[in-house]
Write a protein that binds this DNA or RNA. Structure first.
Lengths: 209, 209
DNA sequence: GTCTATAAGTAGATAGAC
DNA sequence: GTCTATCTACTTATAGAC
């Protein structure tokens, strides 16, 4: 299994550019200017290679392979982060209100964390369906189901309002995502409402009493 | 005032391609493939000109001018539509619940109407700030203030819940926009919740009792 | 692992004939 | 109003020297 010669333990970078530095630069460039707005030349320049000399191709076989690698790495990174946080917050206090507020805060900071990834894929809408699917699973499918289960229990206990826990989960998630995107795309909080005020209003809305 | 010679009443198209047909084609092409994904050649082909011959430039001085004209036309179109609907629904029934449901339905169909425009500008994030500003005014600033006024009155009358009408307006608008975008970008209703179920849950949430 | 050089293609835009 | 022809610039990607 460990048959490869001992060149270096992990990132054998000698003195040149690391694969990771290309991934980092690519994520931010693609996110800011779109896939077509970033030439291989731009990426080379960003990591300190002489622009236009094609040294990029020693690291990735094409511009498209770079994009795929970036998305995959980012999705995994965020999935791990979310799972860790979830374990940390889960049923920590008896106070459901405080717990919801904390959860919504984490949702917003989580969305902020993958801002660049969302941006990147939103730009390339319809062009890389396979990559889009990865984002959907992470952002919608997985997140929403988990919350819906909690809401169902709270509804039984008459802690939160309503009867349709799945729909409630969709409303809450949509509100948080919508708020985040309005902030992100228009660089202004909708109606000038800051995130704490937004979260408080949302929590008041779903809590019974 | 009416000094121009009587060439033709409105769209003097002789027999060639109309300016409007280029705008229509441009909107849909840009929306589907992004600004950089659509060459002048593509636009020419779409309206029946020989691709690659540059006849496009008799109608618009550049590809960028085409984009600006498209956005301006679309924003005006939707603003007019919204204002007409608003007059039609305003205080029509004594039933506030039915009225809210109707309003949210109109919001969602309105968002659907400008799907192509939203798509187009979301792709070019950060590149055409002036055009983005037009969309924000239409979609966030104008819409949200109007709703907030209604909510403030309803809160006084104890018809709807909460104390912060501006924040409530932001939550509602964010939920609707978030729901629309999830549908639009992932081509699947979040959590499999259809729009009527979503709207009902949202209305139940904000109504007192 | 980076450089030089270069191939082959496509883009936006213009001038002028019809 | 459309077509022919063309200029210039830039793109992805490869081959081979160091």
């Amino acid at each position: 299994m460990a048959a490869k010669p001992v060149k270096s333990t992990k990132t054998n970078k000698k003195h040149g550019v690391t694969r990771d530095s290309i991934l980092d630069a690519g994520l931010h460039l693609f996110s800011e200017r779109g896939f077509d707005g970033v030439s291989v030349k731009d990426v080379e320049a960003a990591v300190g290679l002489t622009p236009g000399r094609g040294s990029f191709y020693r690291h990735f076989k094409s511009r498209e392979e770079l994009l795929e690698t970036i998305v995959h790495r980012e999705v995994e990174r965020v999935r791990n982060m979310r799972d860790m946080q979830q374990r940390a917050v889960g049923g920590s206090l008896g106070d459901r209100r405080a717990e919801l507020i904390m959860q919504f805060r984490l949702s917003l900071t989580g969305l902020n964390e993958i801002k660049a990834l969302i941006n990147l894929l939103a730009r390339e809408y319809g062009r890389f369906p396979e990559l889009m699917k990865q984002l959907r699973e992470l952002l919608v499918d997985e997140s929403q189901e988990l919350a819906a289960d909690d809401y169902a229990e709270d509804i039984r206990k008459k802690i939160i309002r309503g009867t349709d826990s799945a729909a409630l989960s969709a409303v809450v998630q949509s509100a948080l995502v919508g708020y985040h995107l309005a902030n992100s795309y228009f660089k202004t909080a909708p109606g000038g409402i800051d995130s704490e005020r937004f979260i408080n209003t949302l929590v008041d809305l779903i809590l019974e009493k």
